[in-house]
């Protein structure tokens, strides 16, 4: 089972309770929640918030592709994955991404959770603009998508 969504902060927030309901399964004995939040420092600058931009359709497509590749890579009997990523401006401590996975065993769940966040960082078209104490802001440098 798989759930993927881009959450517009103007309309709603990412809620752990939604993930908890989705991944609940008596077939799975291990659940991992990876929660990304905005931290207060980066490169010696005091951060006050973050704006996330996304190409929504490509984000969903990317999440689906990562899910498919996780199935062929790991071949776990049962896996449940819930991913939501925020879009828009959020403040310190607020949730930017939630990846919840459930598997039969704990080693599978840890592996799957790590796989998703690392693949998203490399493949999913989402961008971050950091906002600083002095009201300055900056788009963060990211990973190249190869196309040439």
């Amino acid at each position: 089972m798989f759930h993927a969504k881009v959450v517009d902060i103007k309309k709603e927030k990412i809620k752990l309770s939604n993930a908890e309901k989705f991944i609940a399964s008596s077939k799975c004995g291990a659940s991992i929640y990876f929660v990304g939040t905005v931290r207060d420092q980066n490169n010696n600058k005091k951060v006050t918030g973050m704006t996330y931009d996304s190409h929504d359709q490509m984000v969903i497509k990317s999440f689906e592709e990562i899910y498919k590749s996780s199935i062929s890579k790991f071949k776990f009997d049962d896996q449940v994955v819930f991913i939501e990523h925020i879009k828009g401006h959020i403040l310190l401590g607020e949730i930017s991404i939630l990846i919840a996975v459930a598997c039969k065993h704990r080693d599978q769940a840890y592996e799957l959770s790590r796989f998703f966040i690392e693949e998203i960082k490399k493949k999913t078209p989402i961008w971050k603009k950091e906002h600083y104490e002095n009201e300055d802001s900056e788009w963060l440098e990211g990973n190249l998508i190869q196309s040439k």
Binding site: G36, H55, H85, S96, K121, K122, P125, W127, G142
Partner: peptide
């Protein structure tokens, strides 16, 4: 919503998205 290569031909009116280096999470 497909990533297109530099030799992709644009032959009619259309939308193209520019995808700067990414970094979500």
């Amino acid at each position: 919503n497909n990533i297109i290569k530099d030799n992709y031909k644009i032959t009619k009116d259309q939308k193209i998205g520019i995808i700067p280096p990414i970094g979500g999470g």
